[in-house]
Computed example of a mutant assay.
Amino acid sequence: MTLRVLHVSPYMAAAAGGPPVVVDRLVARAAANSADAHILTTTAYSDDSGAGLRRTYPDLTLLPHQRAALTGAGRAAVRRAVAQADIVHLHTIWSPLTAVAAAAARRQGVPYVVSPHGMLDPYSLAQKRLKKRTYLALVEGRVLRGAARLIYTAQDERDLAAPVVGHDRADIVALGADAPPGDTAGLRAAFFARHPDLAGRSLALFLGRLDDKKRPETALQALNLVRADYPDAGLLMVGTGPAEQALRNLTRQLGLQDAVRFTGFLSGQDKWQAMAACDLFVLPSRQENFAIALAEALHAGLPALLTRRINIWREITDAGAGIVIDDTDEAAIPTHLAAGWRHWLADPAARTRAASAAGQLARAAFDWDDSAARTHAIYRAVLAG
């Protein structure tokens, strides 16, 4: 029997980060798991009023914005989408869209599962704390209690969420990550053909939203320290976000203009070319549920510098594919980051071993086909339960 799945995400634009990627990959693998997938989303983060989303996903329900779910027409659209599903998968929380979809599912007797995507992490809960505490009491608590299952991406995510929702009804399914297409040497050559002034440098990669949460400024500060010993070290800052102008200003203040390249948001072949041009991946974030970009970098053979705030840090360090830095002292983070950076630059053989370990880990643990199969197995278990 074909399983009808409704994926509900407040946003599907690529610039929004991880959840849209997860939905996209699950939808792409629905047929292989004897399922038919539909998407309910909004135009949030979309710069073309959703036109691109309609081209990519012809069969979707698209609301003009998240709060549209609270209107009469929006609620009716949500109810229709839910009524056509055997099971609903809510991606993220703290959204009017997911709350209305959960309510519609409860009323219509359609079971639903929730992927919090790190939004029950203490760091996330501390942002707009009073507002979230109130919303949790009035709305989100019922959404979470009504879920047939809570699907986490890592053990750390489940444990960090436990004080709010407990350990019951919990499944852990690691996300997948894409692997680079084609020949790494060719991708690397294509990047340096476009950026010849960076050829010959040992480049680190920061790829993600340029936001205070990810502490991108510490990568610049660490580079400034590293260049005292390795003047050819450089950094690619791939992404956009509210901190971009401040980061550009800091780059000038530190005199790093020739060593740092801001590329803006990259996707597809451009993203893989940037990865192929780099020797390591830097993610000094305050909190990451999974970090798909990091897992993609592992597939590309990039050793990592990361904090324990990334929920897959144990897998990476156990495999010998990265170095965890101490971030308990905020002021010392650039120093610790620089020490790890120097380690990889000083010992190319160790970096080569870590690169091989990174690829092996990614292929074994972060595979979209496996992730989708396990997720669809949870759907069927819920319906059979």
Rank of each mutant, 00 (worst) to 15 (best):
L280T: 08
S285V: 08
V88Q: 07
R374P: 02
L223W: 05
R80V: 12
P64H: 10
R54M: 03
A37P: 01
R79I: 02
E315S: 09
L97R: 08
Y152S: 01
A243Q: 15
D327V: 13
N249W: 11
D168P: 06
L53T: 03
A346S: 11
R54N: 00
R4E: 09
A228C: 02
G141F: 00
W341T: 12
E288K: 02
V100H: 09
F191C: 00
Q245M: 07
Y379E: 00
L136R: 04
R54Y: 02
L175S: 12
H117Q: 05
L53K: 02
I325R: 03
T41D: 03
L305V: 09
R158G: 02
Q257N: 13
R67T: 11
S115C: 14
E217W: 15
V382Q: 09
D229H: 15
D347M: 01
S49C: 09
L298M: 10
A189P: 05
Q273S: 14
L60H: 10
R54P: 02
P303E: 05
P180K: 07
V78W: 06
A372D: 00
G322Y: 08
A174C: 08
W344E: 07
T317E: 15
L187R: 11
W272H: 10
A35F: 06
T56Q: 15
W344I: 11
P10D: 01
A358L: 02
L97M: 05
A81D: 02
V113Y: 13
L125G: 01
R79E: 11
Q245F: 05
A170P: 07
V5W: 00
H89L: 03
H91E: 07
K131N: 01
D183K: 12
S46M: 03
A35S: 09
R188K: 14
Q108M: 10
V173H: 12
R145H: 15
D370H: 09
L205K: 00
V164F: 07
N249M: 10
T61D: 02
Y123I: 08
E244V: 10
R353G: 01
F206T: 05
I172K: 11
D183V: 12
A77Y: 13
S267P: 01
G268F: 09
R188V: 05
D178H: 07
T61L: 02
M275K: 02
